[in-house]
Every structure is written in structure tokens, then in C-alpha cells.
Amino acid sequence: MPEPLLKIEGLTRRFDVSRPWLNRVIERDEKQYLTANADVSFEIARGETFALVGESGSGKSTIAKMVVGLLPPSAGTITFDGQRIDAGAGVPRSLRRRFQMIFQDPFASLNPRWRVGEIISEPIRTFGLMNATDARAEAARLLEVVGLSASDVMKYPHEFSGGQRQRIAIARALSSKPEFIVCDEPTSALDVSVQAQILNLMRDLQDEFGLTYLLISHDLSVVRHMATRIGVLYLGRLVEVAQGRRLFSEPQHPYTRMLLDAVPDLALSGRRRRPVEGEIPNPISPPPGCAFHPRCPLAFDRCRQEIPLPRPTPAGQAACHALAEVAPA
């Protein structure tokens, strides 16, 4: 693999969810932490689409927020194009221009009091890339790039549908000419009929501008359509990483298999459909050992004691003791 554009090592995020200080002192409570992500490591090569999938509460969005600098990591490093962003240090301005984010809810991600032209050109103005006249012209041009009309710059967001708003959000993300875009559930708030249009637009833009995507989604069909590589998250830990198609054809980790079995579309996996059993445990007190063992059909003693480390699989890597026992690496 060539030098990755984004490299994440041992990324961990804990949230302090303790009760207020006075309550803790009076009721002799301990401080409580919620571990949203523990020791997540992966790499994204230039030009690829890396997808993160997982159930609600698996820490997908927390990773996205840490990558773009909205949340400081508790531990671990993020390396973007060779430049390390350490835990605790802010993201340097020179790097900020090179990555962007597309958000989940197009009804919340555009300031309702701003005209579309202002919204799209905000990154241009913030980074001082162009003068005001050029920025306005660029906003109009970008609107046409994403399939809207150049005259829409004077309109307000409420004059557009959900799909159109997401196009505006994409235009804004493109305006600072980034190389890397984090897409946090970009289609989950849209009508099914519009989802495919937005995804195809994203792919066309990727080809045109050589973009690299980190795609966060819980929708396996979206991921299958878009991703070159896929990481599966469970309770804040990366349990499996595999090449896009092969994750679907030969899932390794029992959790991945369980997810695929739950997909309603029979043609997708070719397996007998089975509902996902159990629920994701409370991340404040995760189960010891492998966090998945209470739901895992293959769990044995070792799973209850020892956190599994990622091991290479034919198409990537997976963190599971059962796999290691069957085929020791």
C-alpha cells in the first residue's frame, strides 16, 4: 500500500459522564467515563472510499468528529498526509483547508438565515482563497457542478428539498478544494429515491476531483455501493476491516456475519435472513474481554477474559479469538 493519506493509530475517545461534583461527593460516587472509541487504527489511501459501519452507539460519528477536529481525541494520533495531529493539539489551519465534512441532516447543516451563495462561499472566505467577487462566481459555478442552477445563490435553504440541500452541502464542502471529505451518514436523512442520486453525485465528484472519502453509514447497501474498503465497528472497537466486495462475500468476524444476516435484501448476501440478536451493551461498563462475547454464537472462555487483537484475514483483518483458534496466524 502506498503512503496513506490518512492514518489513524490507537484512536481513543472517552467522555466524562460523571454526575455533578456535589452529587459525587455527597453520594460517594466514582467518576464515570463512557468509552466511545478504544484503540481504533486504520489507514485510508489516496482516492479510496473507506466506510465505517456499525450499529447506533458504536462510535462511528465520534471517529468522524475526531478526524475533522470537532472533538479532541483522548489518546492516539491522526496523521494526515504525513503531518501528525497529536491528541490535545489543535488541527493546523493549513490542514483544515484540505479536509471537509458532509453532515447527516441537510435541514440542520445549512444556516437557515444565510443565502445559499454565502453558505457555499464561507470556506473560501474563511481561508481567504479568493476575493468577494470571485467567491460569488465560484459559488455559482459549484452549484452547477452539483446539479443545481447558478441563480440559486440568492435563495435561502428553506426553498430547497432535502436532496437539493444535501447538494448545497456538498458544494460547500468542495469550495475549499479539499482532498479528503468525511461524509457522516450523508444519505440517511433523505428519501430512498434521492439517496442514489446523491451517492452517484459523490462518486462522480470523486472521479472528477480525485477525492478521498471517509464514509460513515449504518446502511450496508450504501456502503456496498460506495466503499473500496470497509471497517466494522462494534462498541467503539474496529472488529473487522476488509476489501469492499469481500466483506460481503466472505465475512470473517461473527459480528459482521450477524450484521449481514440481518440485511432485509435477500439478493445482497444470499444468506438466510436472521434478526440481529441482543442489543449493544452499555458502553459505560462494557463486557470484559471481547465486547461482543455476550451476543456471539462462537464465544468461549478466552473471549470473556482477553481483548482480541486484529489478525490478518484473506481480505483484511479481524479481531476475534474464534478465528485465531480455527486458523492460527
Binding site: K65, G69, M101, F103, D105, S109, R113, T126
Partner: peptide, 26 residues
């Protein structure tokens, strides 16, 4: 906590600008 404020934070907009240009009008 709305996403349009997060979008402004991602590009590193100044907090005063976010407060008075993004939040205040709303």
C-alpha cells in the same frame, strides 16, 4: 450543537464569527 455550526467549526471559523454571524441571527 446544530450541524451548520459544526460545519463552520470544521473550517476553523473564529468563535466570535460563529457566535455573531451564525448563532445570533437564529
Amino acid at each position: 450543537n446544530k450541524e451548520y455550526v459544526q460545519a463552520a467549526r470544521v473550517i476553523g471559523a473564529h468563535p466570535l464569527k460563529i457566535m455573531f454571524r451564525h448563532i445570533l441571527p437564529n
